[in-house]
């Protein structure tokens, strides 16, 4: 089996995010493997251990992206492609999918996994657009994967409950981070990851021009960032039980109008 996992490096959400004049301040940020993608890698590795498979990572990004790829390799993926070009910074979902389409052209695979969204932009578009461009069957929000009789058995979290779908190979599946708890790479994995192949791919290698990418990027792009408004302080009611209940009733009926 040949499994591709498309990944992205995202700012470490455990750190404080800083935004200035509508722009995200990337200085001093740590970049990590997108949590949803980490779940894809984990699931691919479980399938590899069960049935045997080659797990290949693909990432579009700058130098920081390499660290995310190394994390995936340290977890146990076999090899990686790092698509990198100055024109590929701050890529919109449409453009990312276009670049990946070019990457997958002529490649053989059984399925492509990708996170259902990235932790930084939470767009959740690239996977869907890519499946359209590659003309692949597509399922979203997977919470479980298996392979039976050459079909991919996908458990997906629907609105009403978990649905089980049988998908042909090849397909594209976007995954939830509820699917598993990604393994922590072992020290041996970290040491071995240095020796695993990580191939650099440029736009020219993909037969794309910077202009083409820019045009695609404008179809969906991020205009500005803003922090959510600070939460207003709550009201504290004080007094004996009688006053408390009376004031609360008053507030619920007159101010909040919920009663």
């Amino acid at each position: 089996m040949k499994i591709y996992v498309c990944c992205k490096q995202v700012p470490d959400v455990a750190m404080t995010i800083q935004i200035k004049d509508g722009k995200f301040i990337s200085e001093g940020m740590n970049y990590v493997l997108n949590a949803y993608d980490a779940s894809c890698v984990e699931e691919a590795l479980v399938l590899k251990e069960k049935y045997g498979a080659e797990v290949t990572l693909v990432l579009i990004g700058d130098e920081a992206g390499k660290e995310a790829l190394r994390k995936g390799l340290a977890m146990g993926a076999d090899n990686a492609f790092h698509i990198s070009d100055p024109a590929l910074n701050n890529l919109g979902s449409q453009a990312a999918a276009k670049v990946l389409q070019a990457f997958f052209k002529g490649r053989d695979f059984d399925f492509i996994l990708t996170g259902k969204q990235a932790q930084d932009s939470d767009m959740g578009l690239a996977g869907g657009i890519l499946s359209g461009l590659l003309n692949l069957p597509y399922v979203t929000n997977a919470v479980g994967l298996d392979v039976q009789d050459k079909m991919i058995v996908v458990k997906r979290q629907g609105d009403e409950g978990v649905e089980v779908l049988h998908m042909p190979m090849p397909s594209l599946i976007t995954c939830s981070n509820d699917m598993n708890d990604p393994r922590i790479p072992s020290l041996k994995g970290i040491m071995a990851s240095k020796k695993k192949p990580m191939e650099q791919v440029s736009l020219t290698d993909l037969g794309l021009s910077a202009d083409e990418v820019l045009k695609e990027s404008q179809k969906s792009s991020l205009k500005s960032f803003g922090l959510p408004p600070a939460r207003k302080a709550g009201a504290k009611i004080e007094g004996d039980a009688q006053t408390l209940v009376a004031t609360l009733m008053e507030k619920l009926t007159k101010e909040a109008k919920v009663l």
């Binding site: 660290e67 190394r70 994390k71 340290a74 790479p185 020290l187 990851s193």
Partner: peptide, 10 residues
């Protein structure tokens, strides 16, 4: 080094 950071993070 990158190795040292990866080990620390792990």
């Amino acid at each position: 080094t990158e190795d040292q950071k990866m080990i620390r993070d792990m």
